[in-house]
Design a protein around this nucleic acid. Structure first.
Length: 453
RNA sequence: UCCUCGGUAGCUCAAUAGGCAGAGCGGGUGGCUGUUAACCACUAGGUUGCAGGUUCGAGUCCUGCCCGAGGAGCCA
């Protein structure tokens, strides 16, 4: 240990009050392979430690990876031993030493300790390297994020989001952010969070679609990507109260165009995750084989084709009813690929959906059901472009005309057929990761009975 | 909102038929020269979710409440 070189006079001061210029290069663990044979500095937290007489193993994480640091000494009173033995799980440290390739070390590289600065010895970290219950971990979500599996899920999430943005940006879609505070319901069916907007009521957005329709008429092809809020008392593994959704909208596009767009998007995301997040899938013990089968085209069924197939497989649903959770599972068991279900009865869908010209009782909508039973990942379709028909549907659904005046304007000034859909980011991530419960696919999930932390 | 299940040490759980509330992990102390959720020994740690009831005696049985989980409906 060299007091001067490491600037370790800071040991006894509160961290953050002094800055000691690094003498060794500060690197991240994810870049470790490039530094083999050199002495470097790693700044991170103690993940675990082990010891055996005159050897100490310190497992360090720095947010980008995990690295084993080692120290040997013949002397029982070795000053580094004293420091190492005082460390606890999640203590913050700066370690310096030589990077060496070693097959016995997890990850293939280890750091031979030369020096360590202890920023803080953490006391009583609640998450131990044994099993815990989900409620306990959820109450400690702010700390749970540090563990390897949660880390891997959120790396995949970041990759899915990069893939989505890359997909639309490269196809020259314009990103048009839609408002979160809105004056009224988008669809009028689901429950909205109400809030005060100075002297009037406002609602948290449950979809950017209606505004997307306006920006699509201004920019041709657009997408919005943001948080969405549903005040539904749903309590299942597929639902979050606050979730992220990407919604493209394309002027002049019809149902077929949007099905192709959705298919391309899903194939692109899956390919990207397989290409860049193999390591994370491995940590999550997610078998990549089912994902490797994903390619164009996806199997298609109309609602009316699906109903008898479902009955054959034991469903008790009545014609005219919407697909329930058991129906979703049955359909996804039929194929190795996501399934597109189209042409639903108008009665079970939103007011703005375009009726099928051949069958006015059906609408040109599409739901994409992920394979392996991960449920609906995309919902969308073609929107009504005829002004008179839209007015009629508003009346049928008992919706007030005034709040929709601007929406009706879109059909008044150069109306065109147009289509779009919404893709739920968390459902996509849970499918990619093979995680059954959606609550682990977002850093801080909002659930029916949980808003802490 | 409805149905089902659960709440015992900081955490994960056990406790025969109603009869002295226990173990592992984590913490502390000591040991071990290559550990991989290391291991071994010792040690501290309890308002059994809350309120009431039955009983000589309640973690266990009864009533009410609180909290949570799984599922349904709704959807991405």
């Amino acid at each position: 240990m060299s007091e001067r070189r490491s600037g370790s006079a800071a040991f006894d001061r509160p961290p953050g009050l002094t800055y000691n210029p690094p003498v060794m290069k500060w690197i991240y663990i994810e870049d470790i392979a490039a530094w083999a044979g050199q002495s470097v500095e790693i700044r991170g937290w103690v993940y675990n430690k082990r010891s055996s007489g005159k050897v100490r193993f310190l497992i360090i994480r720095d947010g980008t990876g995990i690295l084993q640091a080692t120290h040997f000494s013949e002397r029982k009173d070795d000053p580094l031993f004293a420091k190492l033995d005082g460390l606890t799980q999640e203590s913050s440290v700066i370690v310096r030493g030589l990077i060496r390739e070693d097959k016995r070390a997890p990850g293939g590289f280890e750091l031979v300790l030369e020096d360590i600065d202890v920023l803080q010895v953490a006391r009583d970290y609640p998450i131990t390297p044994k099993e815990h219950s989900t409620p306990f971990l959820m109450s400690n979500r702010h700390l749970w994020l540090r563990s390897q599996k949660q880390h891997a899920v959120l790396e995949v999430r970041a990759e899915v989001i990069r893939a989505i943005r890359g997909f639309f940006d490269s196809r020259k879609f314009r990103l048009m952010d839609t408002p979160i505070l809105t004056p009224s319901a988008c669809e009028g069916t689901t429950t909205l969070f109400e809030t005060q907007y100075f002297d009037q009521k406002a609602y948290l957005s449950q979809s950017g679609q209606l505004y997307n329709e306006a920006t699509a008429m201004a920019f041709g092809k657009v997408y919005c990507f943001g948080p969405t809020f549903r005040a539904e008392r749903s309590k299942t593994r597929k639902h979050l109260i606050e979730f992220w959704m990407v919604e493209p909208e394309v002027a002049f596009a019809e149902l077929e165009d949007i099905i192709e767009l959705g298919t391309d998007l899903v194939v692109d995301i899956v390919g990207r995750v397989l290409e860049r997040r193999r390591k994370e899938l491995e940590i999550l013990e997610r078998d990549p084989a089912p994902l490797e089968k994903i390619g164009k085209p996806f199997p298609r069924l109309t609602y009316e084709q699906a109903v008898p197939e479902l009955k054959k497989r034991g469903s008790s649903m009545q014609p005219g009813e919407d697909l329930g959770a058991p129906e979703e599972s049955l359909l996804s068991e039929m194929f190795d690929l996501p399934v597109c279900v189209t042409h639903f009865p108008a009665s079970i869908k939103a007011f703005y959906m375009q009726p099928d010209p051949a069958r006015p009782d059906l609408v040109l909508g599409v739901d994409f059901l992920a394979s392996e039973g991960y449920g609906e990942i995309i919902g969308g379709g073609q929107r009504i472009h005829d002004p008179a028909l839209l007015e009629e549907k508003l009346r049928e659904h008992n919706l007030p005309r005034d709040p929709y005046a601007w929406y009706l304007d879109l059909r008044k000034f150069g109306t065109v057929p147009h289509s779009g859909f919404g893709l739920g980011v968390e459902r996509m991530v849970s499918w990619m990761c093979g995680i059954r419960h959606i609550r682990e696919t977002i850093p801080f999930p909002r659930l029916l009975y949980r808003i802490y932390p």
